[in-house]
Design a binder for these strands. Structure first.
Lengths: 200, 200
DNA sequence: GCAGGGCATTTTGTTGACAATTGACATTCA
DNA sequence: TGAATGTCAATTGTCAACAAAATGCCCTGC
């Protein structure tokens, strides 16, 4: 490998994050530096960096001298807290940016939702999860505060996205479209309520 | 150097965290790998790991190929959000553990507060900050959920502790003692209220 | 005097080798 | 037999050298 854009650590982090969030790497799966190094075609240095970062993000658990493995996800006792915090962050972000939302912003959201729709129709879970995250991330990043983005990421990665609650991926899609429609109506409170209802 | 206990990265992280939180390293101060390596008597490897971790924690900002520097602290716009989240986490932790609090637990808290008192009397700001964190951290860690602890740390490090609001370090000490006293009275709601009032 | 381009220095990014630690298995001795 | 200990293989932790990128300086040309 060793490809496209920024430094190796970031590329590896993004790839492994996808693998964990999509479930391709199941909980408990051990991640060894040497084999990852071979898989990505790089040395162990960047791999170590990536594993450290993912551990801090809560996706992996690392024991000193004993390596990393995919974490089990959040315990049920803190789950309600995590949901509440995530709602708070995204609602805050939406209220923060609402007044300055432009037509270009709305079509940027629509573009994400189109990709969402395509993935959902194909039944591609991994891609759908990614678009779901992209949708929510858009609002947070639109605020433009790196600390806010970091806290959001730290929260959402710990809770993992759960898709069992939807009979179909398209149900999830509809929930997101409803948020966009509320924004088009300039109805902040409805948009906040719909956004919060989508987080669970 | 090359000190006492666990692996080098952790030791370096803890030392640098103290330096940043105590203000010894002011915002904007650049941190170069080579000079830190010389200061700690290790190679650049563990230093890089520590800088990466501290950047993720929000204490440093790192630009690709351009190094790390001490971050500016949270922007004023997200400050209320961060405070709210921290209150929520600590109140959650306190409610979670309240029923199972033992006499040993209470004396453990008292021990922390003694050290707090000593530092406050001496006017040692760095040490007082550390005891303040240790007090709050105790409740969170007592829950025993690593994810909760991680989220708390991620929150508190982004907000930094502000001591300008107290005329004296001892005022802060008194606020903490009040929490302990409420716990001794088995008054959960009062303890939660006092704890939340201390977070600002 | 100053704008532009290239060189040198400084700093980070990456690598491969070596050291330390762990856990499992084998061996010994009561 | 079984507990204690020694050894070994696998894995992570650390290091020092090299490569690449960015910044600042100097030099040139106008």
């Amino acid at each position: 490998m060793a490809l496209l854009y920024r430094n190796l650590r970031e590329q590896i982090v993004e790839q492994l994050r996808r693998d964990v969030l999509s479930g391709e790497l199941p909980a408990g799966e051990p991640l060894r530096e040497e084999s990852l190094a071979k898989r990505f075609g790089v040395s162990r240095g960047p791999i170590r960096d990536a594993l450290l970062q993912l551990s801090q993000e809560g996706l992996l658990v690392t024991l000193p001298n004993r390596g990393s493995k995919v974490g089990p996800g959040p315990s049920t006792v803190i789950q309600p807290l995590v949901v509440s915090i995530r709602r708070q962050i995204e609602a805050f972000a939406l209220r923060q940016i609402f007044a300055s939302l432009t037509a270009e912003d709305l079509s940027a959201i629509a573009t994400i939702l189109e990709a969402f729709h395509t993935s959902a129709i194909k039944g591609d879970l991994a891609s759908t999860v990614e678009q779901d995250m992209a949708f929510h991330r858009w609002f947070v990043e639109r605020v433009g505060d790196p600390d806010l983005t970091a806290m959001w990421l730290n929260t959402i990665l710990r809770m993992r996205l759960r898709y069992t609650r939807h009979a179909s991926l398209l149900d999830s899609y509809d929930e997101h479209v409803a948020v966009l429609e509320a924004l088009r109506r300039h109805d902040l409170e409805a948009a906040v309520a719909l956004l919060e209802a989508n987080i669970l």
